[in-house]
Design a protein around this nucleic acid. Structure first.
Lengths: 262, 262
DNA sequence: AATCCTCGTTCGACGATACCGAACGTGCCG
DNA sequence: CGGCACGTTCGGTATCGTCGAACGAGGATT
C-alpha cells in the first residue's frame, strides 16, 4: 500500500469538529512525523486545495473536498427521492429518520432528518461513520453483503461494544443477519445507544442489489413495534425510494456546461 | 511537489457528473498512466475509502470524501446563519442567491438557493468552481485578497473569457477590484453568462477579514440596480451573516488594504 | 464447449522520489 | 536585545512507487 496516501489520510483525519485547525508542529507531534515531512505534506495538500491556509500558519480542510463530495452526492441517484420520502416519514411519525450506506463495515449517514422540535441530538450526524454491526441500518446493509468479506474486516478491526445489547461475536452477528434477510428489515433494541431503538429497511438499486438503508429511530420507552407499524412504514418508504431508482432509463439531462479555469 | 498526491488528484478529478464511474483501463488511458500503476493507485484509494468499488470492476468516489467535506462544512461557522438569511432573500426577491468562498483564484459555490419555480439552471452548482474574476462573488472575494498573490495565480492560469463582458486583463481587474473595495459591493453585468447579472457583497469574519460573499442573481432584462435596491438588500444580508460570526467590533476602514503594484 | 478478447490484478527489479536532520528566516514574548 | 517556537528550505540517502510482462477471471462470439 502506498505510504504517501496513507500519510495523507492520517493528516486529513486530524481535522475534526473539535479541532478544525492544525499547525505543522502540532500535526507533526500528533502523528509522530518529522516536522519537515509534515510541512511538505501539508504544503502539497494546500497546493492541491485539499487543505487551505488559515491565519497564522494554521491549516484547515480545503474546499476541493467539498467539490468532490458534491459530485459524489450529485451522482448518487437515490438521494433526491430518498429525501422526499424521508421528509414525509418525519412529518408523519415525528421521529428521527436516517439514510445510510455501507462503507467497509461501517455505516455512513448520508442524510438525517429530525422532527421539529428535535427530541434529542443523537450520536449520529450527517457525514458520521458508525460501526455497522450495532445499528439498524448497519445490520440491514451487512445482511446483504458478502459474509466472508465483512467477517474478515471485523476480525481485523474488532467489534466495538457500545451498549449491553450490542452484538459482540461473529456467530451472533451471522445469526442476526440471517434473521434480517428473512424478515426483510432490522430492529435495533438499544444496541447503539441505551434508550434508542429503530427499524431499518433496505433500499434496492435498479439491479436489485442493496445500495442503502433507511431507518426510523424511536426512544425505547415509546417503541412498540407490535402496536404501531413502524415496520410497515419504513418498508414502504424503502420500497418507494427503490422504485425511483428502478426505471432504468432515466437519462440525466445534459448540463449546459462545466466551466473550470485551467 | 509530491508526485503521488498529484496523481491521486488527477485520478479523483476524473470522476464527474457525466462520468461517475471509471474502470482501471479507462482511467489509465485517459490519464496516460500505465495500467499497473493506475490499478495499484485506485486500489490503494479504495482501501482508504476515497474510492469505492462499484459493480464489474468499476470505481466510484468514496464516502470518506463526504465525511471530510461534512466536517469542513460543520466547522464553517457562517454557514447556518447564511442559509437562514439566504432563504429570506429568496423569499423576498424571488431570485437565485449564492454563497461562495475563495479558493485560489476560483470561487467555490458553498450554497445556492433558487426560488420555486426555478427560473433556469445556471452554470453554477453547489460544489462547483468558477473563475473568480468574472462573477460578482468572485470579484468581491478577490478585492479583499493580497493582490500580488492572485496576480501571480492569474499569470499562471490565465483569465478565461466567458462572455464579451468578462474582464480579461490584470490592469482592468485591478481597477475593478479597487472600485469594488470603495463601493463595498460588486456588480456582474453578464460577465459570467450572457443574460445574467448579479450583485454581490462581502461576508466578514470575527476578525474583520472577508471570509465569503453572497450574491443575488437577476436576469439581465430584469436588472435595474437604480430602481430596485438589490444592492441594499444584499449588503444588509451580508452584514447580518457577518454579525452572526463576529460579536466583536469590526472596524469599517480597513487600513491595511493592499495597494496594487504591477 | 472452446476460443479469443479485455478486464483488473500480481510480481519483481529498477530508478525516481519521498524522507528527514540540519540550517534558515520570521514573528513573538520576555 | 536575545531566546523561543514556528513554518519553510535544502540536499544526500534509502525507500517505495513505478512499469512491462505475466497471470487469472469473465463475457462474448463462433
Amino acid at each position: 500500500m502506498s505510504r504517501t496516501i496513507d500519510k495523507v489520510m492520517r493528516v486529513l483525519d486530524l481535522f475534526s469538529l473539535e479541532r478544525p485547525e492544525w499547525g505543522v508542529s502540532e500535526a507533526a507531534k500528533a502523528l509522530g512525523f518529522p516536522k519537515s515531512t509534515t510541512s511538505e505534506l501539508m504544503s502539497d495538500l494546500a497546493d492541491q486545495r485539499l487543505l487551505s491556509r488559515a491565519t497564522k500558519g494554521k491549516y484547515r480542510l480545503g474546499w476541493r473536498l467539498f467539490e468532490l463530495s458534491q459530485t459524489l452526492l450529485d451522482t448518487t441517484e437515490f438521494r433526491m427521492e430518498a429525501r422526499r420520502v424521508m421528509e414525509e416519514l418525519v412529518g408523519c411519525w415525528r421521529e428521527t429518520v436516517h439514510l445510510a450506506v455501507l462503507d467497509g463495515v461501517q455505516a455512513v449517514y448520508v442524510e438525517k432528518l429530525q422532527p421539529t422540535p428535535a427530541v434529542k441530538i443523537w450520536i449520529s450526524r450527517t457525514g458520521a461513520r458508525l460501526p455497522a454491526h450495532c445499528s439498524g441500518v448497519g445490520k440491514v446493509l451487512l445482511a446483504h453483503s458478502k459474509w466472508e468479506h465483512i467477517a474478515a474486516l471485523f476480525e481485523d478491526q474488532g467489534m466495538p461494544t457500545l451498549t449491553h445489547n450490542t452484538i459482540t461475536t461473529l456467530d451472533a452477528l451471522a445469526e442476526e443477519l440471517e434473521r434480517v434477510r428473512e424478515l426483510g428489515y432490522a430492529h435495533d433494541h438499544e444496541e447503539t445507544l441505551v434508550g434508542l431503538c429503530c427499524v431499518a429497511a433496505p433500499v434496492h438499486g435498479s439491479g436489485g442489489e442493496v445500495i442503502a438503508a433507511v431507518s426510523l429511530s424511536v426512544p425505547a420507552y415509546r417503541f412498540c413495534p407490535n402496536e404501531d407499524n413502524y415496520t410497515a412504514a419504513i418498508l414502504d418508504a424503502a420500497r418507494r425510494i427503490s422504485e425511483s431508482a428502478g426505471p432504468e432509463l432515466q437519462e440525466s439531462p445534459d448540463y449546459e456546461m462545466e466551466v473550470q479555469g485551467t
